[in-house]
Amino acid sequence: MEDKVVEIKGLKKAFGDLKVLQGVDLDLHKRENLVVLGKSGSGKSVLIKIMVGLLRQDAGMMKVLGQEVSTLNTKALNALRLKIGFSFQNSALYDSMTVRENMEFPLVRNVKNLTRGEITHKIEELLDSVGLPQSINQMPSELSGGQKKRIGVARTLILNPEIMLYDEPTAGLDPITCSEINNLINEVRERYNTSSIVITHDLTCAKDTGDRMAVLLDGQFKSIGSFDEVFTNADDQRVKSFYDYNFIQS
């Protein structure tokens, strides 16, 4: 299919004796928000780290924007990385730099011939879009968890990515901030025409942001479909308990 931006087939990854991914198949379509759910340590983050070449698979295929990631040389991999935005679980803001410097960092290294004014304009525009225009000169240590997440997302958007990868975007945040982050994920898709993979074990986030859900259990996707398809008629007891825990607890 032409609208597939990510194509994964038979992907395997192990760390020593620990087999994390055991033949994963998955597709991400253009302008789709796909949510990957699973227990902690089930290999969700490993999957997206293979996607950006931070880890290498042991077997199987990982095609991103038509290119097999494991066969790319450094130059080609970097060119591909510019089209992928990666929002880290703990935001990964450079803590020795201000918000402005954090956002400048990827921009000045990858886009040549930008004037000072153009850089500032781009940064201000993105900070505005994540609702934090006043934070431009703050240090990461002065920001709250939710603000850090937003700045992290803004930093990845500065290179106009086609695909966004969100690693646990709502982990450790209060319900109101979680809801703001969920809205931001949807806004990013609308405004920047991105396709997204959202890694989470927060079902509220999954329901609010995802077009499709994929549940990773025992190193494979056990069920893929809309939220209702996956959870309403779940056969697997673990998928059911995932739903029960999230919604009964809340």
Binding site: L54, R81, I84, L93, R155
Partner: peptide, 20 residues
């Protein structure tokens, strides 16, 4: 300590995925 802390908080990975 500085580079170690950047490593464990994924700041080094963040640089890598931004093609730096």
């Amino acid at each position: 300590a500085e580079i170690g802390s950047m490593k464990v908080t994924e700041q080094i990975d963040a640089m890598e995925v931004s093609a730096t």
